[in-house]
Write a protein that binds this DNA or RNA. Sequence first.
DNA 1: CGCTCTAAACAGA
DNA 2: TCTGTTTAGAGCG
Length: 626
Amino acid sequence: MADDELDTHQVDSDFEPQSRPRSCTWPLPCPEDFPGGQEVSGVLPLANIKVEPEDVSACIAGLVGGTPGELKHPAGAPAPTGATHPCLAGAALDVTGPLRKAKSSRRNAWGNQSYADLITRAIESTPEKRLTLSQIYDWMVRYVPYFKDKGDSNSSAGWKNSIRHNLSLHTRFIRVQNEGTGKSSWWMLNPDGGKMGKSPRRRAVSMDNSTKYLKSKGRVRGKRVGRPGIGAGSVVVGLQGSPDQGSPPQKGLAGTGGASGTDGEFDTWTDLHSRASSSASTLSGRLSPILAEGEPEEPEEGGLSCSTSPHLYPSPTSARSPSMGAGNLCPPLEQLPQLANLTGAISLDEKLMDDTVGRHKHQTPVYHYSSGVKGQSPYGAGVYATGMGMLRHHSPMQTIQENKPASFSGTMRAYSSTNALQSLLTGGPPPSCHNHTPPRAVALIPRGNSNQLQTYNHKAPYLYSPPSHAHLPASTTLPPNPAGMLGMPQDSCHVATAPHPRHNHYPDPQHQGMTNGPYHHGQGMGNGSVGSNYHGYHQPHPHERLPADLDIDMFHGSLDCDVESILLHDIMDSGEEMDFNFDCSLAQGVGIGMGMGMGVTMGMGMGMSSLTGPQQAHSNQSWVPG
DNA sequence: CGCTCTAAACAGA
DNA sequence: TCTGTTTAGAGCG
């Protein structure tokens, strides 16, 4: 990625002032901070806001002791005091805010921040809140003085290794599959924040089992590794063990596990396991955003380690959201994805395609994935929605695949749900899935060879107003606004309030840089989203505000369980035969979850229509919940 | 003890 | 070769 990319982030509509809590010190996006920003409909190209790398560096440096660079508004107007370009938020944050506990003056050569913090910032600094590994490297090189010279080094440098290591290790980072073939995954912030404060370690002890198993197949071998725990034996235990919530999944898992052996199965299993179960667990128990943090994962670890490992989530696009916006609250993405995956795996392919696509997509022939945009705002919500999963996919990890729906529970709830609900309620776009609006499109993407399909619906992003933007993802660690991070409910509110979403569609600069963006693919592939197109349609919907309060909370628990169970069973049993149809609506955000569950179980195609209204909302919620 | 950094093995694409 | 995962060890507070 070129530098440009970084520099030119566009600001999304997401960043609506409204949404943002003014209270927060920090993370206010351009629009507010920078006059004119708001005016820009949809996207405000960062390009306009030119920030010199140096500035950024300066900001960062600030952390270290430097002075924050002054950012200029496109217009030339100086940014508000202390303001920094959102994009740079990460960097800036520190300056202002407390650095990571500055225990000592500086922890690293580059300052107080740890790699994880830097990575967090890097990710946050993008509109889409996601970066590929290489982009992260670039960011470091560009913005962190310490790494500047190291950029080219062959680098395989240790620092890169460290970055990779941190990405994999910390739950605060989630890996989202990049649609593009061959591309590296997107790394996003875990909506739920992972374990915010601390660095959560993904590795589960127990991972052994499932995940490990898989992985281990490969890797471990020679290694010295041999950890006791890891051994095969543990597997079982793990499964059983996870008490977490006792979520059902486990059982599934167990069963599953047993079941097959084949890879396919295995995968499935794994997915389920990880996903479902985790989701389940997560959903039910863990999810609670808060929970999550606590230990969400760990429990699993004990039990399932799956979760621990980085999760793959579906596409960011969808994904993005959660994290972003909302705040971070969101619960773990995992959940959705998981389910999704399962389902997806199952058989959706064609059908989905047909159904979903057909329906929704209509337009979509081309999907561009416009990533950014949609995702952003909506984040949550709908965005994720989608999907389905990939099932098969092998990766043990949980990564979100692009298409998949990711759900972030916590966040989702707030956001997504809300969004969804909103949509529904308002009739906004989301719902529109059915209606006119094409939901983001559902795309199925077969990944790789394979098997996986991903479906992805985006829902109208806008609808939801983004809440915010996300507020920034505030650095998790970094405190700028804790609130943001934490989860703040605010967001939701914001959302509600938010005027209209802008449409964002912007071409992500990054994306470009990025691997390719899904966009391209999207088009070709038909992935989902439609960003622009879609936007066009919807754009306006300003009205769409939601009632702020949607309760999302309603159901969490129950559904989760069921879903999982169901999924597991079904999947297990039927194996591949199941058909799922997801409704866009459902898919969206929370809905997805439900949808999936429902769909799966029911086997219904869910028409979109069926769910309208509140119900959907509920469903969504339920799903979300985590 | 917990966190972080660093190094490295290893696997997959 | 790059990416990603995981283990391991060392240092620091």
